[in-house]
Each structure stands twice: as C-alpha cells, then as structure tokens.
C-alpha cells in the first residue's frame, strides 16, 4: 500500500522570482496524507505564491512539485478533481443564491445538484440555501466558500486565510469544521495569521519569511525546541527583580507593564522557590506559545 503511504504533496527545491524579488526561495516540503498543515508567515513571505504553485496556477522557475503523485502543471485534468481550493476573495456566482451557486460549482465538476445539497449540509448552511450570496453574513460567506471548495469531495484542500475577518464565535465554529474535515481524512493545507488557531489545529506548521522556510515541525516541538520556556507573571512589588533572579530555575527576569516576568524551563521548581516570597494565587503561568516562537523567528520585539 505504498500509494496510500506516499505523501500528498512533495515540493523539491521550488523557487519563484518576480524581478529581483525571490518570492519563493528553494523551498522543500513534504506533506503527508491526512495531515493538517499550516503555512505561517508575515504578508509577503511567499505563502500565497507557494500555494498557487502547488495548485498549478503559477509555474515555478525551478524545482519540482508533486500532488498525489501527479504534476499540477500544465493544467492537469486528472488532478483537478482531487484538489479543492478556497481563494482569499470569496468567489461566488453573481446574483445567485447560496444553493444555486453550489449547484453551479458542482456542475463544473460534472456532479449532480444533490452534491451541492450535501456540501450545504456539511457546512451547516441548509437553512440559508435560498439567500442571495450578496446577502449572507460574513461567517456564512466563509462557510459557503468552504462548501464550494468541498463540493466535489477532494482529497487535498487548500484554504487561504479561511478565518480572516471572522468574529470569535464564527472562528470557533469554523475551527471545529476544519477539525471535522481532518477527522474524515482530508489533507488540509492552510494559511492563517491566527497563531493560536494554528497551534490548536495543525499537525505541523512551516514558518515562512522572505520566501524561505525558517522552521518546520509540529507546534509542540517548535515550542519545546525554541527554549522560550514558560513565563511566570507576578504583580510587581511582591519581590524585587534582584531577588527573583536568584531563585532556583529562573533563566531571566524582566519588568513589563508593572509586572515582574520570570522566564523558566522548570515551572514547578520556580513555583516551589516562590512559595513564601509571593502569594502563589497571584502568579500567572503562561506557557510559551507558537506565537512566541513565531515572533522570535520573524524578529519582531517580544512581548
């Protein structure tokens, strides 16, 4: 069964330049079947270009791309039904209802209207099927866009910032929907600026900057390897920064916004040492997050 075990997507030394700008600079990534893969990075890091190359919409200057064992370019009619792509702009047919739009998209894949009904149901939009695409709310638009992506039941799904511009509740719902997709075995490649979400959802993430992969691993592994450790936040005045620096296990001390911040890789030891010096109820424990790793790698000043 080596076919099943073979990776869903293999990028080998893929490069793409626009004039002097190296949008994608010798990127090699292998994404497994059923994997939830996140592409992270600041705007202009090359995420969208990279995804468009994988989709076959752009040709790389160098390197090879294989998606489900096939080359995405030139336009590959065997591959296209196996991939689903959500674009950043919500692409809906003009002046149609949600249901009519999905029926049209289904027909693009030669599928009957019943498939559209299933996709509508999958994203929980059955009740809004007869609403014009211009009239539906932001969260529902995003769901409809994802339904369009899934209508032909693709194996690999590309989502470009699916949770951008959503309110927290809609974002949580969509996150659950994405988890369900993973549960039914879809390979998902997505870009996002919400690092908390990426940390929760992704099996692995690649952090991109200036067309290069700065880091690639599971969020847990990236956090552990970063050595950022846990931060313990104590209201200032309970003990002096000098005192804090001498405590067992403390790696660094800082005063931020009137709070004393201790950094450590050994939370339990520091808490034990703090007991007595400060009320432990006042101590807030903040484990390192993917966002900390990201900001350290990208070079923004750390919070």
């Amino acid at each position: 069964m080596s076919f099943i075990d073979s990776p869903a997507i293999v990028l080998d030394a893929v490069s793409k330049s626009y004039g002097e700008v190296r949008a994608v600079d010798e990127i090699s990534i292998s994404i497994g079947r059923g994997e939830f893969f996140g592409l992270l990075g600041p705007n202009g890091a090359g995420k969208t270009t990279l995804i468009e190359i994988v989709e076959g919409l752009r040709l790389p200057d160098a390197g090879t791309i294989t998606v489900l064992g096939r080359s995405p370019a030139p336009r590959n009619l065997d591959l296209l039904p196996l991939i689903g792509v959500q674009t950043q702009r919500s692409a809906f047919f003009t002046r149609l209802t949600a249901r009519e739009h999905l029926v049209t998209v289904a027909a693009l894949y030669g599928l009957p209207p019943a498939t559209a009904e299933k996709a509508l149901d999958l994203v929980g939009l059955t009740g809004s099927g007869d609403v014009r695409v211009t009239k539906i709310s932001g969260g529902q638009r995003q769901r409809l866009a994802i339904a369009s992506t899934l209508v032909h039941d693709p194996e690999v799904v590309f989502l470009d910032e699916p949770t951008a511009a959503l309110d927290p509740e809609a974002r949580r719902d969509l996150g659950q929907m994405l988890r369900n997709l993973k549960a039914i075995g879809k390979t998902i490649v997505y870009t996002t600026h919400h690092l908390d979400e990426a940390q929760n959802l992704c099996d692995r993430v690649a952090i991109l900057s200036a067309g290069r992969v700065l880091a690639l691993d599971s969020p847990r592994e990236l956090i552990a390897r970063s050595g950022i450790g846990t931060r313990l936040v104590i209201p200032a005045g309970r003990l002096s920064p000098e005192q804090a620096g001498t405590l067992d296990g403390v790696n660094g001390v800082a005063v931020e916004d009137g709070m004393l911040v201790l950094r450590t890789a050994h939370t339990a030891r520091v808490l034990a040492a703090l007991d007595g010096a400060a009320d432990l109820d006042d101590v807030e424990t903040r484990p390192a997050t993917l966002e900390d790793v990201y900001l350290e790698l990208i070079g923004a000043p750390q919070a």
Partner: peptide, 17 residues
C-alpha cells in the same frame, strides 16, 4: 470582468471545465 475580479475564473480554472 466580474468573474475575473471575483476569482470565479480561478475557480473554473481549477475545475475540469
């Protein structure tokens, strides 16, 4: 113009149609 602006041409381009 509208289909290109709304990325609908891209959706069609990515389908076997």
């Amino acid at each position: 113009m509208q289909w290109r602006n709304d990325d609908l041409l891209r959706i069609i381009r990515l389908s076997p149609t």
